[in-house]
Amino acid sequence: PGGSDLKTLAKQVNTAYLKNLSMTKKRARSILSGKTSSTSPFVIYDVDTLWKAESGLVWSQLAPGAPLTKEIGVHVFYRCQCTTVETVRELTEFAKCIPGFVDLFLNDQVTLLKYGVHEAIFAMLPSLMNKDGLLVANGKGFVTREFLRSLRKPFSEIMEPKFEFAVKFNALELDDSDLALFVAAIILCGDRPGLMNVKQVEQSQDNILQALDLHLQANHSDSVYLFPKLLQKMADLRQLVTENAQLVQKIKKTESETSLHPLLQEIYKDMY
């Protein structure tokens, strides 16, 4: 495709991203830096502030479908699941708007989402994070990293690797228009196991990657190695997802009182 085609593609993907993902990096950064006119997020830093947040201050209802539990680590695990499920739904709608995605076999669309959504979520999570914590509940709450670290094992191990990734990823200073193309490239990945039409997926991903490369040259003209750095981040994200899947398996095995949302069961089953 020519330059103008790639610019059109970048615009389409950016519009789809802004339309379907509820929390943009722009909004998150404005909340985190205190520059927004809306009220500051409620800070969750210990058990008391967590239950205050759960009593209607931050979340309007307890984690739906999750059994009531007094164990704090289990509770946080359910909250992570709720957010993940909601984001999978948003990512599915985003994927449907990426040019070429709905033309793929339905089976291949399922495969791309199964393997791509967690990488996409961990690529978007840094937008909500700084080194001290992360925004939750659509920006109404801020959970401190220290509180998440203080949970008992294995629950304390859920978020820490994502913070470590986020600190490095945020140093690249991507904006929503860059992230839109990056996330689209993650979803349209030609080497997911079990794809029926690999060539078709590779062709779509190639177009997205060309659009991303061109977009970065214009949007980050002073950062010459940004495109290859992002290709490396794709590999890092795959590793992060593998470790996350192993941790979820461990929690399932050792924490008999926890349950996994049916959508996440589908995604994790026979994944890696």
Binding site: G65, T92, N107, V110, L263, E266
Partner: peptide, 21 residues
């Protein structure tokens, strides 16, 4: 694949919100 990924299929085929969160 369809049998094993019913909710993902449902999400892909419906534009409204079919998943009970």
């Amino acid at each position: 694949l369809k049998e094993k990924h019913k909710i993902l299929h449902q999400l892909l085929q419906n534009s409204t919100s079919p998943v009970d969160l």
